[in-house]
Design a protein around this nucleic acid. Sequence first.
DNA 1: CAGCATAACAGACATTTGTCTGGTATGCCA
DNA 2: TGGCATACCAGACAAATGTCTGTTATGCTG
Lengths: 211, 211
Amino acid sequence: MPKTPPGQTRNRVFRFVRDCLLRGDSPSLREVQRRFGFRAVETVRAHLTALVEEGRLVKEPGRARGYRLPKRFSSPAPDWSTGRLQPVPLLGEVAAGGFEEAIENPEGNLPVEIPDSRDLSDYFALRVRGESMSGAGILPGDTVIVERRGTPVSGQIVVALLEEEATVKRLHLGKDGMELRPENPDFDTLRPPPGSCRILGRVVELRRQLR
Amino acid sequence: MPKTPPGQTRNRVFRFVRDCLLRGDSPSLREVQRRFGFRAVETVRAHLTALVEEGRLVKEPGRARGYRLPKRFSSPAPDWSTGRLQPVPLLGEVAAGGFEEAIENPEGNLPVEIPDSRDLSDYFALRVRGESMSGAGILPGDTVIVERRGTPVSGQIVVALLEEEATVKRLHLGKDGMELRPENPDFDTLRPPPGSCRILGRVVELRRQLR
DNA sequence: CAGCATAACAGACATTTGTCTGGTATGCCA
DNA sequence: TGGCATACCAGACAAATGTCTGTTATGCTG
């Protein structure tokens, strides 16, 4: 019965459970027990209930493997809208060939957090081609996550479908109609005639891999 | 005993379980049962074992709440390195105040895919402050995901700790020592004297919210 | 010292959860 | 018509997991 200084084992238990939970894998009492070589399950339970009382853990009662991290742990950031993590289909570059078909055959899925109020089918992702938005920090090869819903608002960065080709531009709605403005002086503003252009959605997130 | 067309219920069950798992919360058979109003647990088990056989789910045997998503699910795209989805701690901006303490008290966590060969503790995230890297498409407010491991390589974008302050710059190693080059003509290259600067890691991913 | 809190053990017990075996109904197809 | 597969139900059972009650030891403190 080796007795350790107060709080020391408790901390080690906490770190272990926390790491499990961050891996998305709630441990059972007996798993923790084995890990630390305790000879009684109750020892673990005492530690965990203590950790819950201290507010360092949260428990869903009446449920196997019910220990969780308190909310502040899993909420990504203050301004990040808390939502569900959902697999958003990545459609590739969607050049000529059809947008609708691409929806059916995505290249893969991206784990993206979307608000609770929205539906997964409102989102898709595209890879950016071309330099036309580099002034806005959107570079070729980046992936943009697009939300379909809502009326297009002037000033937003949108994905527009022009002659079976998807492009990322900043939308401007004026009295002369719609303008799609690049953010790069080497490119020209597009003024598509009414009916020839469809706004697929607005860009809500950008991701870039630098590996 | 309402019989549904083949595969239809199966798909609905799959989507439900998948969404649970993406939320990091493996459901029990009886939870799925209640959700769909089945009157037998076995019905659920039949569906789930079928889904495992189809390769759409994976199961850890001899374990409560042991259903998981197969790896490929979280691999977004061909060139995206296949890896686990892990909650990487977001440390905020890490200005003066200490880097080590920030590790212990993250602002939140970001779901990020990291290679199987790496450890979660090798990664952290930071919010970018300042315009010094805007030429590389890294803007203020962006979040960079940083990998600690490995020797710094010339030409990579890194996070450096200079006088208790973290900065993102492009690293250049020459015969005159280390240079930290901004990617914006308005800023000057830094040449920190040896010992006064620590490279925390290299930027492997960038995320930006535009909501 | 007595009193008290903490750390740990021991084992019984209850609940949750997964597994099994067998049955009913429906549609498809040779 | 008779298999045969699929969808589903029913209930028993076993394994995993959480809960409880009681005990021993250690250190601190008045």
